[in-house]
Design a protein around this nucleic acid. Structure first.
Length: 426
RNA sequence: GGAGGGAUGCGAGAGUGGCCGAAUCGGGCGGUCUCGAAAACCGCUGUGUUGAAAGACACCGUGGGUUCAAAUCCCACUCCCUCCGCCA
């Protein structure tokens, strides 16, 4: 969440920034109103508590000198103050809880450099690789769901039998391909990122830390019986890994990578954009994550983006990078770059990575700080990015590498991870 | 799943109703001493909210309750440890 003091101390700038993200004026005004009210109540409450404390001390002292009636008098007075304190506390608490719930669904302030706009149409393509989309011959114009069936490496029907639509089942070299991609990526990141294998079912509190709750509860699978949630991305456990901790500045940056399954309900999604592997309830992804100081954020952000792009390049896929506009970014982000690969078979650009700098928004929620050199505690900055989400890569790969005879070539860099197999044939 | 034990500041660990936000030791930081270091000695050293400041208030696993007053008493929960059972 954002620091409420920004609204208090620099109202106009903050309001304008929030409006760029599509926040209603009425909500902003409500926040300011509640903040003032909350401070009034807590001030009164603290004043009452202070008086009660003083009376208690007097009672304690008088008890020893045995002044019965004075003690009774003071006790009665303290009792009535105590009752008032309870009432005021309750009011303060109720205002606080409304304030907090509003704050928890309020988006982060966008980076000033991030493009204006409220919808995906305003996202800016900042580069394409290769600069011009190559010509794809007819044999590369077959969608991956057909290729998967033809080569018997993807069985969406049986996946659906087990779990419903949008749950894929990879088979044979199809399954090996996902595993190869994972190993390839993790090995590539291992130079600077520490590999983590986190739990994939997490507490409500953990989902709150990254910003996935309370606003997006409809998007997540919930294990109600045990009060756990299936993670929609490794970002969730990685964000809360250091929750409620104070790190040393010398520990930073902390750079992590994790391969996990990701679960998304994708409520309401249906139609041509969901065929095959385009949109799934469960998929695998390698994630990059960073805890950094404010000064380190920009470098780590561009390094993560570079890594996502590097993977696309090494896999020989056409891709482009988008600078997301203020209104299209996720709740927690200040600046986001998306990487999209081109899938010639289904003729679509597929988002395979989203690299975000979240400032101190998540750190504030999860209470993650570091002791700076001048011994002042500050919130860390967090960054996350996929590198990469495999099903769409899988799709783009089999479509791009399909040969005239219907077989699919395996890119050189992956063959080592696939027992040396260079081609998937019928 | 059953039985028991525990949770206090950076770490260890006292504290069972009233100057306890918390003894003591260790660690860290600063100083004295030293050519320098070690040792010794002295001092400082939790987090947050609010306030211009002085200050005030909150926090002793979490949430409730009792009381004029709770780290301390009561209730519920969570986590950790030990033993038994079960198990990839």
């Amino acid at each position: 969440m954002i620091d409420i003091r920004l609204l208090r101390e620099d109202f106009n700038t903050t309001k304008t920034a929030l409006q760029r993200r599509g926040v209603e004026t009425a909500d902003i005004d409500r926040l300011v109103f509640l903040d003032e009210k909350h401070r009034r109540f807590t001030a009164r409450r603290d004043q009452l508590r202070s008086e009660i404390k003083k009376l208690s001390a007097q009672i304690s002292a008088l008890r020893r000198s045995d002044k019965g009636e004075t003690v009774d008098q003071l006790t009665a007075k303290s009792k009535s103050l105590s009752n008032e304190e309870k009432a005021v506390s309750a009011q303060a608490e109720s205002v606080n809880s409304e304030l907090r719930s509003l704050l928890l669904i309020l988006p982060n302030l966008p980076d000033p450099d991030c493009p204006d706009g409220l919808t995906a149409e305003s996202n800016v393509i900042i580069r394409s690789y290769p600069t011009r989309l190559p010509e794809y011959p007819l044999h590369q114009r077959v969608p991956h769901w057909d290729i998967g069936k033809e080569l018997d490496i993807l069985d969406m029907e049986r996946g659906a039998k087990l779990s419903g639509s949008m749950f894929p089942l990879y088979k044979g070299m199809g399954a090996a391909l996902v595993r190869a991609l994972t190993s390839f990526a993790l090995d590539l990141h291992a130079d600077t990122f520490t590999e983590i294998q986190p739990p994939t079912l997490v507490r409500t509190q953990t989902m709150m830390g990254s910003g996935h709750l309370p606003k997006f509860s409809d998007e997540a699978y919930q294990v109600e019986r045990d009060d756990l949630w299936a993670i929609p991305t490794a970002e969730v456990p990685l964000t809360s890994m250091f929750a409620d901790e104070i790190l040393e500045q010398s520990d930073l940056p902390i750079l992590l990578t994790a391969h996990t399954p990701c679960f998304r309900r994708e409520a309401g999604a249906a139609g041509s954009k969901t065929r095959g592997l385009l949109r799934l309830h469960e998929f695998n992804k390698v994630e990059l994550f960073g805890y950094v100081t404010q000064d380190q954020a920009a470098d780590v952000h561009s390094d993560m983006l570079r890594r996502a792009e590097e993977l696309c390049k090494k896999l020989g896929l056409s891709y482009r990078v988008l600078d997301l506009c203020a209104g299209d970014m996720g709740l927690s982000a200040k600046r986001t770059y998306d990487v999209e690969v081109y899938a010639p078979g289904c003729d679509q650009w597929l988002e395979v990575s989203s690299v975000s700098w979240c400032g101190d928004y998540q750190a504030r929620r999860a209470n993650i700080r570091y002791r700076s050199a001048d011994r002042v505690n500050q919130f860390v900055h967090t960054l996350n990015g996929s590198a990469l989400a495999w099903p769409r890569i899988w799709a783009a790969l089999v479509e791009t590498y399909r040969l005239e005879d219907g077989s699919v070539e395996i890119p050189q860099c992956l063959q080592h991870y696939m027992r040396g197999v260079g081609r998937i044939t019928k």
